[in-house]
Nucleic acid binder design. Structure first.
Lengths: 233, 233
DNA sequence: GACCATAGGTGTACGCCGTACACCCGTCAA
DNA sequence: TTGACGGGTGTACGGCGTACACCTATGGTC
């Protein structure tokens, strides 16, 4: 009796019924606040008030869970907007994808690693890419040209992220960082660049350079290049 | 006596003295053949004929080991070559970096994740970037313009790798892959593109599209864009 | 109403991981 | 001779993913 009562209470109050979506969204939330490395099945279960093995009734294993998380993220990207020309539609969509990636800093890493481990990207990613191709095609790109375009947009030419001066502030003062004069001696060009940038934007708080501006600059340079190609065909 | 003899034998024959470099290079070798996910301190130790904790006399912990591995890889990139103009020097260097990344498919993932976790990239990466900037500067780029250029080269505009059609062959025949007609219905544009590409290159074995060609196409498009910018300043 | 298949949550247990900590031994400077 | 020390060892701990057996409430069938 008593037992039944407490069970009923527990069931009524804190126990939403658990589902694949609930698992995925709390996983995303946990990753957002603690990073993917700190994400474990056990912690997800705990956050849901459930025993770890319960999760396996809704996702096959951790990799499949990561795939599901990717699909959640891709779902956050705005659908292609309206009837503008290809350039602005692509531009908006890419910027929307970027906003998503900034909201979930762990995203690019897991997309990278999961995509390499699978035979094919997850369905949501496929759909995203498909619609992207569709925009180019509707804009008059030949099949060949859109193939090139996808490679251009998907490649990172430098193998390494450009996030060099990303929030020098905001971290605890790293003990084994080089003193500035050593920096200047060892990496003269980086130093020159960093100083110029910092000076340029001395009014701006936070990161030494306006990443959003730089990203859009890169995007526009590339889209202009593609447009020129389109014109000459 | 006997014990000393066997010890001497063991010491003489299979026991090179162990060093940071030996640890790093066997770690790289193991990652090459089994992927980073399968790389563990215990396996590295085993490969070196040593107990796991022995490694910690040469690397502080696993993250620091990964950082060291990155530096090994970056060291494989050819130094800037000769006295050609900036465009060909950059081009050669980027292609050399790409060759390194293709030799070590796990590299981009660990560089990505480690760079995000550190206050600053590893020294070898810094040096690479510094010399890259130096090439642009020597080619007449203003500080501002080289800043833009680094962002252009370092950004991936699509958040997702373009490795869509990467070796459809060469994998075991994935059980839950969609049948072709379903593919065509759900992802019409991808299908169109894939078929066109496959047809184009039907003589070529392996991957449906020539990734090297596409990469160079993207690189040249970008470098041309930068050159145009340089001209108009 | 009796029955039983099934879906979904539980508990236990295994093997692997990174690594803290105490130890031990050979080398070499004083 | 001694004693510090660099480098390899052994043990142990807590956390991980997950296989497997179990329990229980639900709902369809006779």
């Amino acid at each position: 009796m008593l037992k039944m009562a407490t069970q009923a209470d527990a069931a009524a109050q804190p126990r939403a019924p658990l589902s694949r979506e609930r698992v995925l969204s709390t996983a995303v939330a946990l990753a957002d606040e603690g990073g993917v490395d700190a994400l474990s099945m056990r912690k997800i279960a705990q956050a849901l008030g459930v025993v770890p093995m319960a999760l396996y009734k809704h996702v096959a294993n951790k990799n499949e869970l990561l795939d599901g998380m990717i699909d959640v993220l891709v779902g956050e990207i705005d659908p292609p907007a309206g009837d503008a020309d290809w350039k602005t539609v692509i531009r908006r969509r890419v910027l929307s994808a970027r906003r998503m990636l900034l909201r979930h800093p762990w995203a690019s890493e897991v997309i990278e690693s999961r995509t390499k481990a699978r035979a094919t990207p997850t369905p949501a990613v496929m759909e995203y890419l498909d619609s992207m191709i569709g925009i180019f095609r509707a804009g008059g790109f030949s099949v060949d040209l859109v193939h090139h375009a996808m490679h251009v947009m998907g490649s990172r030419l430098l193998g390494f992220s450009q996030e060099l001066f990303e929030d020098a502030s905001g971290r605890e003062p790293d003990p084994d960082a080089l003193p500035p004069e050593e920096m200047a001696a060892r990496y003269p060009h980086i130093t020159e660049l960093a100083m110029a940038v910092a000076h340029d934007e001395e009014s701006v708080v936070g990161s030494g350079c306006d990443d959003q501006f730089e990203f859009e600059f890169a995007l526009d340079l590339t889209l202009d290049g593609l447009e020129r190609l389109l014109g000459t065909t």
